[in-house]
Amino acid sequence: MKKLIFIAALFSALSIYAKPAKKVKIGIAKIVQHVALDDIERGVIDAIKDAGIDADYDLQNANGDVGTAAQIANQFKAEKVDVAVGIATPVAVALATAIKTTPVVFGTVTDPVGAGLVSTVEHGQRNVTGMSDAIPTEQHIKLFKEAAGIKTLGYIYTSNEDNSASALSLVEKGCKEAGINLVTQSITKSDEVKQAAEAIVNRVDGIYLSTDNTVFSAIASLVNVFGKAKKPIFSGDVTAAKEGGIFMASGFNYYKAGRATGEMVVKILKGAKPASLPVKFMTDPSDSDFLIDLDSAKNCEISIDQKYIDSANFIYQNGKLSEK
C-alpha cells in the first residue's frame, strides 16, 4: 500500500512538469499600450514559447478604459481560454471578477492584496496569482534628493486606479523620510497628463514617476513640459527613459518581469494550481536597470556625481543611449 501511495504521489509531482499535449489558448490583456507593458506582453509570450508550449494568443488592449477591460474579461470567459493574463491592476481585477474557474495570472500589479486579487502574497487565491511590480519608492526619492538636490517633489497620479492610490501612500512616506515637500496632481485619463504637468511644474523642483500606466501612456508630453522648464524627472520605469529627457531612472527590467509572469503561466499549464504559487517579486539585482541621462542633467544644470555614472548600466548622452 505504501508503495502504491508513493508511486501515486510521484506521478502527481511529475505531472506538474509534463508538457501540455494540445495547443492551448491564452488571453493577454493590458490596460494601455506603452513600452513597459508591451515588454511584459512580449516576455510572457517568449517564456511560453521557450517552454515548448504550442499556443494561440488573443491579445487585447483596454485603451485605459475600465469598461473595456470588463468586456475583454467576458470575452476571454466566453472563449474559454486556458489561462487569462491581466497586465496592470484594472485589467487584472476585471479578469478576476469575471473569471472564477479558469486560471488568471496578473502582471505588474503594485499592490495585489490591496486590489483584492489575493489575500496574501505568500500564495495565490483560488484561481488567481501573478507578479507584482512594487518598486522601492522611498529609496528612489532619497536618491533623487541626493543626486538633484530637490526640496519640493511633484507627483502626478491616476486617482481612479488602486495601483496609483497605493503608490501615492509610498511617495508620501518617502518624502516624509527624506524631509522634502510634496505637491500632487491627480488625473483620471492620459489626455490630462500634459495639463497636470503644466499645473505642477512651476511649484516643484522636480517630479517623481512611479509605475502609473496612465501617466506613462502620455509620457512624451510630461517630458516636454519639464524639459522646457529645466526641471529634472526621476522615473521608476527605466523603459520610459530610454528615449531621452528623463534625468534618472531606476527600476526592474519589464521584459524580464514578463518572462517571470510567463513562467508562472507555464507552471499552471503543466498542472500547478494558481493558489499554490506565491506572488512573484522582481528582487534580484540582475532584474533591475539604472539609467542616467547626461543630456537632461545638462539641461537642468545639475552636476552628476561620478558615483552615479559608474553605477548606471544605461547612459543617455548626445541624443544616444549606450549600455554598459
Rank of each mutant, 00 (worst) to 15 (best):
E79K: 06
A257S: 08
A167W: 14
V24D: 06
A47P: 12
S132W: 02
S166Q: 01
K19L: 15
G174R: 02
D39N: 13
K194Y: 01
Y57M: 04
G179K: 11
V183W: 00
L294A: 10
A29K: 04
G245D: 03
D293A: 03
A241E: 03
D310H: 03
I45N: 07
F11R: 04
Q317T: 04
V266A: 10
C175T: 15
G86K: 01
G271D: 08
K242W: 09
S159D: 13
V85Y: 02
S296H: 01
K267S: 10
I31T: 01
F290K: 00
F144G: 10
G154D: 14
I7T: 09
G262M: 07
A167F: 14
R259Y: 07
Y57P: 11
D284Y: 08
K256A: 10
P136F: 00
I292V: 11
G245Y: 10
A196I: 08
A62M: 14
G258H: 02
Q195W: 02
T137Q: 11
G244A: 09
D111F: 13
L170E: 12
Y255R: 00
F247H: 05
A94K: 02
G130F: 05
F252G: 12
A199Q: 01
Y308N: 11
A148I: 14
L37R: 00
M264E: 06
A8K: 06
E41N: 11
K25Q: 12
A218N: 15
H140K: 02
S164Y: 08
N202G: 04
L277T: 10
S169P: 06
I5P: 15
R259Q: 07
T97V: 11
T68N: 07
I302C: 09
F226L: 14
D289V: 01
G245C: 09
T120D: 12
V128W: 00
G116M: 09
G52F: 11
K19G: 14
R126F: 07
K176T: 15
L117G: 05
Q125H: 13
K242L: 07
M248D: 00
E177W: 06
D293L: 02
H140E: 15
A220S: 15
P278I: 11
N61G: 03
G130N: 03
Q60K: 15
D212V: 12
K80H: 03
S190T: 06
D82Y: 08
E41T: 10
Q125N: 05
F76R: 02
A147P: 14
D58P: 14
D289S: 11
P232C: 06
V266I: 12
D133T: 05
K280F: 06
S164K: 05
I141E: 10
D191C: 01
S322C: 07
I246H: 01
T89A: 01
F216E: 09
N202Y: 00
A241Q: 05
D58K: 01
T108S: 12
I268L: 08
F281A: 01
A257E: 14
A29D: 09
S311C: 02
I7P: 04
Q75T: 14
S119R: 11
K256N: 05
Y155L: 12
M248Q: 07
T89I: 11
K30P: 06
K273I: 12
